[in-house]
Design a protein around this nucleic acid. Sequence first.
DNA 1: TCATACTTGACTAATCGGATCAACTTTCTA
DNA 2: TAGAAAGTTGATCCGATTAGTCAAGTATGA
Lengths: 141, 141
Amino acid sequence: MTISARVHYATLALIELALRQSEKTPVAVREITRRHGIPGPFLVQILRTLRSAGWVQSVRGSQGGYRLAVEPADLTLLEIAEAVGCAESNCQTDATDTPANRMVHEIWDAASEASRAVLARTTLAEIADRTAQDDAVMFYI
Amino acid sequence: MTISARVHYATLALIELALRQSEKTPVAVREITRRHGIPGPFLVQILRTLRSAGWVQSVRGSQGGYRLAVEPADLTLLEIAEAVGCAESNCQTDATDTPANRMVHEIWDAASEASRAVLARTTLAEIADRTAQDDAVMFYI
DNA sequence: TCATACTTGACTAATCGGATCAACTTTCTA
DNA sequence: TAGAAAGTTGATCCGATTAGTCAAGTATGA
């Protein structure tokens, strides 16, 4: 469960889309990259993945952009991380299959499971809401 | 907290040394590599790190080898992972510092902390003991 | 004195994550 | 109906990290 830049950017983009769900026109890639400082073509690549996961819709042509296609409350950070991140194969070695080897692997698995549990119980809706609150405070100041 | 082969091998080696603490002569590298299927020169490299951490002692010359230099109950898997593994810098990006960015980073930190907690509460003594039991069962069969 | 075993430092090969580019298609708008 | 604005796709590149190797040297027991 290594959190790569890819996963981080994907999450930021989804938050942005979640916060602007009510807008009529879709959100252009350039707006997202500008607001969050994400390298442009890289975000495009990430959005492609999000689209094939069915979480965003794209609208082509002028005035085009991206729109969230799911309920933010239904999407967990674990799902995002697993869909966007690469293979999360934990610790592949050629070590002999011994009791010690199995025992140690159990611990790595338990550690991995612990962090996955944290991500699994956090939804996009939660962080979007909390972000919105912070944004409001910033605006007020 | 990615578990690399390096960390895995280090842990296996330390278990082996822990189980053979009572032996008169130190344990040769070759014995460890054979029993656990660890690439020879690679293990040497790892043992160097363990030695500079002060966890193992080396004995040179004929009949030489390695010996555990600490109480297995005092060594946690987290310490091993952090000493042997490389930089565990979680998610470095150039993303703009926004509420969303901070919020998301908090979650990654929480996830990382959860897995570290698991490793922090597991000691070398525990896994060595449990391994010894499994070994005994295998021998009995 | 020789075989055994650790020491050290440099070196290589493969993989992966991050990032970029160019050529193309779609759609709006003037 | 032309052109500008946007997304689409596939290929590609680069640098860092990891896994793993090698060779020359040193210490020690038999």
